[in-house]
């Protein structure tokens, strides 16, 4: 029973191969707010499912090293796929799938669900922001592909700022909650495990760099577009700042 629930959970908190369902689900929704909300809600749903079997990590303790390794491998897989993604929506989705692998990693060590929730949120929130902004791009340009028409920052500075901040948050840049989550997660395990995550951090940085390069550099060649509204970007800013404060506070509270 426990195992069945765990497998069900892999469909919502993405872990390969169950993550295929998660990605198909999110991709099937219309771009923008719908996708944003989905990536916020679905992992929490999955965590609820896991909450139903709190003993599962202890029961499956024999499989722990394999499980943790599998989580790391799943994260690596999605990070590599994100490297070649040119579409902002697809990139965010894949980076989220990669980052949520940490949740599984920490779950195997028996962390309480509240901690897992915070971990999941620290990736979901920036991913939701990024997907929302990707929806805005699709509305205006037909597609959220970057790098086609040059630096978006010239015509949509506010949207680009939001995307850059969300991208930084997604790739566990210090000060954003994902970084503290990662730190917490890795500190709790043996150093050898932490080694497995180093190439992952490198890949995340590289993926972020490629996205930013396409967003920020180059002369804009496309049609003229209107930027995202000031109110929207202010709300996004508040959201990210709020998550920052929460992350700083919560990581202090966790021991």
């Amino acid at each position: 029973m426990g195992i069945a629930l765990v497998v069900l959970a892999t469909l919502f908190v993405p872990l390969f191969p169950g993550s295929w369902v998660f990605n198909r689900l999110v991709a099937g929704l219309p771009a923008g707010l719908a996708q944003g909300l989905a990536v916020l809600v679905l992992p929490q749903l999955g965590l609820e499912v896991l909450h139903l079997t709190p003993q599962a990590p202890l029961e499956l303790a024999a499989w722990r090293p394999w499980g943790m390794g599998w989580a790391a491998v799943s994260a690596l897989l999605y990070a590599v796929r994100a490297l070649s993604a040119r579409d902002v929506g697809i990139w965010s989705r894949l980076m989220l799938s990669s980052g949520l692998g940490l949740v599984w990693f920490v779950w195997w060590t028996g962390a309480p669900t509240e901690v897992l929730r915070i971990f999941a949120l620290s990736w979901s929130v920036p991913a939701a922001v990024a997907l929302f902004l990707a929806g805005a791009l699709v509305d205006r340009m037909g597609g959220a592909c970057v790098g086609l028409q040059g630096g978006l920052v010239e015509v949509m500075p506010r949207a680009t700022t939001g995307l850059v901040l969300a991208g930084l948050a997604l790739t566990a840049t210090p000060m954003f909650p994902a970084f503290f989550s990662l730190w917490r997660g890795l500190v709790a395990v043996a150093p050898a495990w932490a080694m497995m995550w180093l190439p992952l951090i490198f890949l995340w940085g590289w993926a972020a760099g490629r996205l930013f390069q396409d967003l920020l550099f180059g002369d804009y060649r496309g049609e003229s577009v209107t930027d995202v509204g000031v109110a929207t970007i202010a709300a996004i800013g508040l959201l990210l700042a709020g998550s920052l404060a929460l992350g700083l506070g919560a990581s202090g509270g966790l021991s």
Partner: peptide, 10 residues
């Protein structure tokens, strides 16, 4: 060539 319609790029 960079001229593709954005909606079709992917």
């Amino acid at each position: 060539g960079g001229t593709v319609l954005p909606a079709w790029a992917h």
